[in-house]
Design a protein around this nucleic acid. Structure first.
Lengths: 245, 245
DNA sequence: GTCTATACCACGATAGAC
DNA sequence: GTCTATCGTGGTATAGAC
């Protein structure tokens, strides 16, 4: 199975395929993308995908790696930079969240200025929410180190929470972020609000950050949920059934 | 295009198709589901799907309607019940959130006790995050009234926020909820935590609710984001570029 | 090494036999 | 109400042109 070593010229085909893959993924997701449409849009032969990448799965992995490798490198660099500026002290949640968000904005703006055909911010969101096991496995495995690094930072910022509680809260954070970035309807709304300005996305993340920071710092529920399981839930169950009547 | 009026017997075929559709949708989503696999699992002929439902899209719409009609009816009933108990006063966020969450738990538990082959909670989550335009349009159109009803309740609970701010926060709430319910990895984790107990899902939503309630009530960012656009963002941009160096 | 043409099997959809 | 045959399109694989 030969791979491109591009002796001296013309990886143009490869590049056009990657760009078409981004555009098609943004609109239709992984399962919804057909290689025939994609290669027609890229004006390359159908088989070129298999020659350059090995197949649909590998194409999408390469496309995502090209964006997310850089994104997560920037995120980690920004986090390290923030930590270096306040040595000894733990960062606060807002700072860590902004290390998570701002590289997204930065790369998206950069891509836009370079005339990229796709909105990188929405692409990131789509990648996080796409249900295809292929992509989910790829992202969670390849970027597990970066995720662990941010988790440690949050653990220092919120030492009062047990690790498991923190895991869940981070999961909620990523969910809100991914869903927000991926949404198609909200971006139409936001465009209506601010049709001229191209920095709507910055406004959106500036709304999301305080929401998530407050959620992260919310006190634990009165009764420790991990302990309260056995009989409180039976009670809730009866309450539910009573409400139905 | 004939439809089943089931003169006297055997809507068993229709029912088996619906059950297989739930199972397959849970595992592979809409685009990832093939009717051939689905009909093989349901032990019915391929063409039976088109006879009983009219096609793949209509099958999935029917499957979702069967679950979500009931779910949203319960949600609205619970919300009305809560409002009746505290007449005049606005509900607090936790109460409204629980009107949103508890019917999910209740129906999922009920389905489990009736021996349903699928975890209804995860099914709900998958439906909320599935990227297929067919399903997204169906859900957003069919359940727009219920969404508006809850939005009104939140608006009364949080009168200090402008309507637009509230729209975004509700979007964040639904994002975190959908992503959490849909996740496959977290459910494996939770099963490891509490392998015997079948009420793990209740624990999860009891963690999510305070997170979201705190986020909903978070104060607005110091500088009004809608006004601060013009030159603050140019500053941010320079900061970003400086950080990259 | 780069790209094309073409054949292969599985997919959703549909018409018509039983 | 159920099934078979068939059509256009999906991803994949490979032989061979340049």
């Amino acid at each position: 199975m030969p791979r491109s070593q591009h002796g001296k010229t013309s990886t143009a085909t490869r590049q056009r395929i990657l760009e078409a893959a981004e555009a098609s993924f943004l609109e239709h997701g992984f399962d919804g993308t057909s290689l025939r449409m994609l290669t027609a849009a890229a004006k390359v032969n159908l088989a070129a995908v298999h020659y350059h990448f090995g197949g649909k799965e590998e194409l999408f992995r390469a496309m995502l790696a090209a964006r997310f490798d850089l994104l997560n490198r920037e995120r980690l660099a920004l986090l390290a930079e923030c930590e270096k500026r306040s040595p000894g002290r733990a960062l606060d949640c807002e700072t860590i969240l902004s290390a998570l968000f701002r590289p997204c904005l930065q790369l998206a703006r950069q891509a836009r200025e370079q005339g990229a055909g796709v909105d990188l911010l929405r692409l990131i969101g789509r990648a996080y929410v796409d249900p295809s096991p292929v992509l989910r496995r790829f992202l969670s495995e390849r970027y597990a180190p970066a995720a662990a690094r941010f988790k440690e930072a949050f653990a220092r910022a919120l030492p009062q929470f047990p690790k498991r509680e923190l895991s869940w809260r981070l999961h909620f954070v990523m969910g809100a972020l991914a869903y927000t970035l991926a949404g198609t309807d909200p971006w139409k709304l936001i465009a209506a609000i601010n049709p001229e300005e191209s920095d709507n996305d910055a406004l959106l993340l500036r709304r999301l950050a305080p929401f998530l920071a407050a959620g992260l710092q919310a006190p634990l529920p009165a009764t420790e949920p991990e302990q309260a399981t056995p009989r409180r839930l039976r009670l809730m169950k009866r309450q539910d059934e009573a409400l139905r009547a």
